[in-house]
Amino acid sequence: MRFLFCILFSLATTVAAQETVRTNDVTTPDQGDDRSPPDARTIVEIIDQLYRSDSSYSEVAMDIVTPHWERTLEMNVWTEGTEKTFIRILSPRKERGMGTLRIGREMWNYLPKVNKVIKIPPSMMMSSWMGSDFTNDDLVKEFTFAGDYHFSLVQPEYAQDGVLYIECHPKEGRPIIWGKVMLAVREEDYLPVWQRYYDEKDNVMRVLEFSDIRALGGRRLPSVLTMIRKTEKGHKTVLHYKELKFNVDVSGDIFTLRHLRSRL
């Protein structure tokens, strides 16, 4: 689920990879008819790097919808490399000041009401992050489609004009819970339309939809991401990027427990 992570928290990545993306960024849009035929590797690399940079800062609204309640969390997110993430919740009032810090595969939550930092135990990694349809695990996994999956362009029955489809199967030995991931991207600029995650029995487990393409942090990116869990009826989580900056200054003590524990 590294991809989600990328999107959610705009991870930075290696310089080399970044360079490739940059090149692609420059070359892909509006190349017209003399464009070379679509190449699966090019596309997954673009998808992998879409929201990445050395560091980032974003302002995000997260709508969580369930059959029982609906609520919106607003938060600020900082990232540095693929290793570090810091999230601070701004609203609603009850959750204001809560924070999450991730360094590598370790995660802490801060609860201002009881002034306590809780380290998430490994057994809780598959539970929901802040009641959303994302799991804690989604925040820490670091897979890339280019590096951890076999992929190929396919033409499924439901194929639509102007959309390319890539089928991805996890490589041997990767601790990936999906049996298959389908990517749908726009033929014109390779921006993602949706991603479908299947289990071993080929049932769709989750669908991530991309929409509302805007200029964000100097790139053209979908600014709304909707996560729908097919296993739970009536549940979805919608992310709205209100602000996204790449390569910001993250020096200082942002990614520390002391900062996590500090009150808003």
Binding site: K94, E95, K116, I118, S128
Partner: peptide
């Protein structure tokens, strides 16, 4: 002890 759970209104219940 600090307890953390999700309340029926979706909020993150936490208390000492």
């Amino acid at each position: 002890l600090v307890l953390l759970s999700q309340a029926a209104d979706g909020s993150l219940a936490n208390d000492r």
